[in-house]
């Protein structure tokens, strides 16, 4: 059933001297390295560090100013990308079932109907995120946490080998975070690559084995406990505030071997 095809451990993404930005103003500089298939990677850093910019570029929605991103055998439409500021119109008259079913687009496209198996999977996804019984409720009548659950259900149905989450737990309660984090763990267990931009360092330490600390450049990358050291976090803050002293960070290679 799953479309996860990337062999565990093989490189899924490669950054080659990657510089990203907007209107020729760089936001992230000279990233180098690989992300292996099956990784569960958190991207953390101060505001303005370029975390969302990097995610957008991985999703293929931002052309690099310099360098390139190699997506090994991965079409950008095989990437499930949950953005921080969705263009979703929450006043749109659509019910939870129909909204979540849009995640099946790769299978049914614009023109095929929903079969009974599709409907079963839609209901299973809705139940998996804890929205059972709300299938016929308009999305405009959902709370923030419920809407985020519906968005996760849509991602679930996309069955994508690479899942990008941009601050997925902003403004939702602890129970929703707990449930959705369990879903992220499930994706990881299924062999999917999950890359999430997060702010809650305690959550990252608890849930994510690997972390990339960004501050307009890669400050550190590797095992979460070593990356989130006081020294690295201090250096990230300095870099974000423009006080970098030019000395290399404790871990600054962005390839998996550096972990």
């Amino acid at each position: 059933m799953s479309r996860v095809a990337c062999p565990q451990g093989a490189a899924l993404l490669r950054f080659d001297n990657l510089t990203l930005g907007y209107n020729r103003h760089p936001a992230v500089h000279h990233l180098q390295g690989e992300i292996a298939g099956g990784s569960l990677l958190a991207i953390v850093g101060p505001n303005g560090a370029g975390k969302s910019t990097l995610l957008k570029a991985i999703a293929g929605e931002l052309r690099p100013l310099q360098g390139r991103i190699e997506r090994y055998g991965l079409d950008r439409r095989q990437i499930a990308y949950l953005t921080q500021q969705a263009t979703l119109d929450q006043t749109f008259p659509i019910v939870v079932h129909d909204f979540v079913a849009m995640g099946l687009w790769r299978e049914i496209g614009a023109f095929l109907g929903l079969g009974s198996e599709h409907r079963r999977r839609v209901h299973a996804a809705i139940e998996r995120v804890g929205l059972h019984g709300l299938e016929r409720r308009p999305i405009g009548a959902l709370s923030g946490g419920q809407l985020q659950r519906a968005l996760f259900a849509r991602v679930l149905l996309q069955d994508a080998p690479l899942v990008l989450l941009d601050e997925p737990y902003g403004a939702i309660d602890a129970a929703s975070v707990r449930d959705l984090a369990a879903l992220v763990r499930q994706w990881h267990d299924e062999g999917r690559t999950v890359i999430a931009v997060l702010h809650d360092l305690a959550h990252v330490r608890q849930e994510y084995p690997e972390t990339l600390l960004l501050a307009r450049e890669a400050v550190a990358r590797g095992e979460t406990t070593s990356v989130l050291s006081p020294a690295n976090l201090q250096r990230a803050r300095q870099l974000a505030e423009g006080h970098g002293d030019g000395t290399p960070a404790a871990v600054c290679r962005v390839d998996r071997d550096a972990a």
Binding site: A59, R77, I79, Y81, D89, F92, I94, F99, M102, A110
Partner: peptide, 16 residues
């Protein structure tokens, strides 16, 4: 419907 409801999502998943 999807173009009106969530245009960025449509742009991500479809060439249409």
């Amino acid at each position: 419907v999807l173009e009106a409801c969530d245009p960025s999502f449509l742009a991500r998943i479809s060439r249409l």
